[in-house]
Design a binder for these strands. Structure first.
Length: 570
RNA sequence: UGGGGUGUCGUCCAAUGGCAGGACAUACGGCUCUGGACCGUAGGAUUGGGGUUCGAAUCCCUACACCCCAGCCA
């Protein structure tokens, strides 16, 4: 019997949920002793692209399940197709999984390590009369496979004598035949309603160089043949994969049963879909190759490397994976949940700074010309241990253009002519004059300050409605800021409108580059990777392109902005 | 059309024959030197139709909808 388990799990004690269906299966197996209470999973990427947030779900599931049940999880590259696979991808995948915080010990495996063993097993199957060499071309195989409603026809080579099969298969391996001229097929049932069981191809001839085995092989195993063997060899208990492999499970089971070898349990779950993005490796590759984005680690990409560069934390991604759950029904997660997860984590750990995206010059008329003073600011109100820092203040400052309105609507609490607001950690200031250029655009403000409000508190107890951020003009350092937004303009770019290519929905405003943004001087020695909050704006990080005299900052995600909601309503 | 799967708030996930609950999102309020964070409140769902049962999201029948499968890709 399955037991309910409401004990808190995972790294975030706030997140506690009942068992997902896979963990229920595992606990049932543990109860029945199916695998002697042993739990061994694996994450089996094909090294033909970079990992994305969908893979992160699978990684968290497989490694997380092993952690939860004191089991093991292997990292195994499923490199059975030399045409698509490269070492660059192997390296990036290793880096990404490590960064997420998972560890596979010394259990780093490659399907290609098992090619010899797989070949032996194939010979076994031939000897048992369960596999044969087929001379049909790809086209002929397709034509004789039948259809969804019609049975297939048996290959004329299906009943070849075992000896002949053995001989031909060995000659396939030796390279005597050309690409595509022959295959090794399992002899199952051409009338099966499950197309996967209609004598599936086990080996194809491919005179291609493999990223690890070089030119040793010219025949390569197909997924269905290889994958169960990989799992079996590694003594995996629960082989977790996505829904589209459900139809393949009878074949997975058939191979292992015919061979009479150790037999893991395949379990399928629904892959992750996210609004406003795409998850298809093929399409992601197209975005990279077509230069729609600046590489796999472009911060707009849903790749792990892109999200890392964007400023996401491993904890945010892992918490997200915990929150979305695991089930069999196809679903699309609202990207707002991902954004919530990263804000939640960054709110706790990100130091605060001030920076201005769209500067408006403000002269404080009654502030002494050459004076400058240092004011104290709290580094992180969520974490007292991070202490305080000093920020310089002087007569001329920059504020955000959007923090001033000449003719403000009712609920606008920021600066306006005659109105007093607080400059965060500094003084109360009142706007006394507005300077415009010829076209009527506000280019400069004049204010007076109240010296008694030093530090931002009013001794007479008077209140102001707004507090705005600022940077001293004289002390500011310039930064280049990348404002990232969603890559697509519609929630489901891949399938929203019939006949539309997803690329038509690329958000032309997904990247805005701002130059010479004044930011507080405390950021002058910030190192790439630093994650922080610009107060009132959002979470940001230092981009790796940053050099000594060129500070490059990426926006991870904005803060929740209730004013924007009010403003958008009208 | 054959086979395999899936249908619960706007979106995800739970409820394992016994009060349909949580998270995000949304709306409103409180608090605040970030219109942030935090706290509180509210609205909001069992695909339809039959049946079994004291009692059904859950079991049975039936209809419907959606997803996957006809690569020598994984």
């Amino acid at each position: 019997m399955t037991q309910r388990n409401n004990i808190q799990t995972g790294e975030n004690p706030d997140i506690s949920r009942p068992l997902n269906f896979i963990h229920q299966i595992i606990e049932d197996d543990n109860a029945s002793g199916k695998f002697n209470k042993r739990i061994h999973t694996r994450f089996p990427p094909e090294p033909n692209g970079y990992l994305h947030i969908g893979h992160a779900k699978s990684i968290c599931l497989n490694f997380g399940t092993a952690e939860k049940y004191n089991g093991l999880c292997n990292l195994r590259f499923d490199d059975t197709n030399p045409i698509k696979e490269e070492d660059e991808y192997v390296n990036s995948i290793i880096e990404d999984i490590k960064w997420l915080g998972f560890d596979w010990g010394d259990r780093l495996y490659f399907a290609s390590d098992y090619f010899d063993k797989m070949y032996e097993y194939a010979v076994d199957l031939i000897k048992k009369g369960k596999a044969y060499v087929c001379d049909l071309t790809a086209e002929e195989i397709r034509q004789t496979r039948g259809s969804l409603t019609e049975a297939g026809q048996e290959s004329p080579y299906r009943n070849r004598p075992i000896e002949e099969n053995l001989d031909l298969f060995e000659r396939m391996r030796k390279g005597e035949f050309s690409d595509g001229s022959r295959t090794l097929r399992a002899k199952i049932d051409m009338t099966s309603p499950n197309l996967n069981m209609r004598d599936p191809v086990m080996y194809r001839i491919l005179h291609a160089s493999h990223h690890r085995t070089g030119d040793k092989w010219c025949i390569y195993p197909m997924y269905d043949w290889a994958h169960g063997l990989e799992d079996s060899i590694e003594k995996i208990t629960h082989s977790i994969c996505t829904l589209e492999f459900e139809d393949h499970r009878p074949l997975y089971d058939w191979f292992l049963n015919e061979l009479g070898v150790y037999h893991p349990q395949q379990i399928e779950f629904a892959r992750l879909n996210l609004t406003y993005t795409i998850m298809s490796k093929r399409k992601l590759l197209e975005l990279v190759q077509g230069k729609y984005v600046n590489g796999w680690d472009d911060p707009r990409m849903p790749t792990i490397s892109g999200m890392r560069r964007r400023g996401y934390t491993p904890a945010a991604i892992r918490n997200f994976a915990d929150r979305i759950g695991v089930a069999k029904r196809e679903s699309t997660i609202d990207v707002a949940l991902l954004e919530f997860s990263v804000r939640e984590d960054l709110n706790k750990i990100a130091p605060r700074f001030m920076g201005v995206m769209n500067p408006l010059k403000v002269v404080i008329d009654n502030y002494p010309e050459n004076q400058a003073e240092e004011l104290e600011a709290i580094n992180n109100p969520e974490d007292e241990s991070t202490g305080i820092r000093k920020i310089p203040f002087s007569k001329v400052i920059y504020i955000e253009k959007t923090d001033f309105m000449e003719d403000p609507p009712k609920k606008f609490f920021r600066l306006a002519p005659g109105r007093e607001v607080r400059l965060r950690y500094a003084y109360f200031v009142t706007c006394t004059d507005v300077v415009k250029n010829e076209s009527g655009e506000v280019v400069e403000l004049h204010c007076t300050y109240d010296p008694a409000t030093w530090g931002g508190d009013s001794p007479d107890g008077r209140k102001v409605r707004g507090t705005i951020h600022w940077v001293s003009a004289k002390h500011a350092i310039p930064a280049k800021v990348h404002l990232y937004d969603r890559l697509f303009t519609v929630p489901n770019p891949s399938g929203d409108k019939e006949g539309c290519d997803y690329k038509e929905f690329i958000n032309s405003e997904s990247l805005k580059v701002l130059t010479n943004c004044p930011v507080e001087p405390n950021l002058s020695d910030a190192k790439p990777g630093l994650q922080f909050q610009f107060e009132r704006l959002g979470y940001f990080c230092i981009d790796p392109d940053t050099t000594n005299d060129n500070l490059v900052i990426n926006r991870t995600v904005t803060l929740r902005d209730t004013w924007a909601k009010i403003a958008n309503r009208r």
